Computed example of a mutant assay.
Amino acid sequence: MPASSSSPLSSSLPRIVILSTGGTIAGAADARSKGGYNAAAVSAQSLIAAVPGAEEIARIDFEQVAAIGSQDITDAVWLTLARRITELAARDDVDALLVTHGTDTMEETALFLHLTLATDKPVVMVGAMRPSTALSGDGPANLRAALMVATHPESRGRGVMVVLNDTIHGARDVTKTSTTQVETFQSPNLGPLGYVTPNGAVFLRPGTPRITLPLPESAPLPRVSIVHAYAGMDDLLIKAAIDAGARGLVLAGVGDGNAARTVIAALAEAAKAGVVGVRASRCPLGPVLRNIEVSDDALGLVAAGLHNPAKARVLLQVLLANGVTTPTTVQSAFDRTD
Rank of each mutant, 00 (worst) to 15 (best):
M148C: 07
T86G: 13
L117P: 06
L301G: 05
L221I: 10
I242G: 01
T329C: 12
G22D: 06
R290Q: 13
A268D: 11
G27Y: 02
P140N: 01
K121M: 03
P153L: 11
F203C: 07
L79G: 03
G157L: 07
Y230R: 13
A118P: 06
L79R: 05
D235W: 01
G53T: 02
D234I: 04
T337E: 15
A49L: 01
R336W: 05
D235K: 03
L147Q: 00
L143W: 02
K34I: 12
A298K: 15
G245S: 10
A270W: 01
T109K: 02
P284L: 14
I168V: 10
L143M: 13
T105H: 12
T175V: 15
L135W: 12
V77L: 15
S155Y: 09
G200A: 09
G170R: 09
L115V: 08
R130D: 00
D256L: 14
V263D: 01
A54H: 01
P192S: 09
H114G: 05
V123D: 06
G27H: 04
G274R: 04
N291P: 13
P216M: 05
V42P: 03
Y230H: 15
D95F: 02
L98P: 04
I48G: 03
A150S: 01
A96M: 03
A50R: 06
N258D: 15
V162Y: 07
A67N: 09
T212R: 04
M129P: 08
K239I: 05
L143K: 00
G248Y: 00
A312I: 07
A303G: 12
H114L: 08
L215F: 05
V330G: 04
L251M: 02
H169N: 09
M129K: 07
A201D: 03
A219W: 10
V149H: 07
H114P: 06
R156M: 10
M233D: 11
L316K: 10
Q64K: 14
G194W: 00
P309D: 03
D173N: 12
A304N: 08
L320E: 09
T177L: 08
L47V: 03
L251A: 00
P284F: 10
A49P: 00
T24S: 11
T177R: 14
A304T: 07
T116G: 07
A171V: 07
L299M: 14
L289W: 12
T119A: 10
V324T: 12
L204D: 08
L9E: 13
P14W: 06
A231S: 14
T133Q: 05
I226R: 02
T151S: 03
T184E: 11
R15H: 15
A44R: 00
T105C: 11
L289S: 13
V126E: 02
A26H: 03
P153I: 09
A270T: 06
L316G: 08
G127I: 05
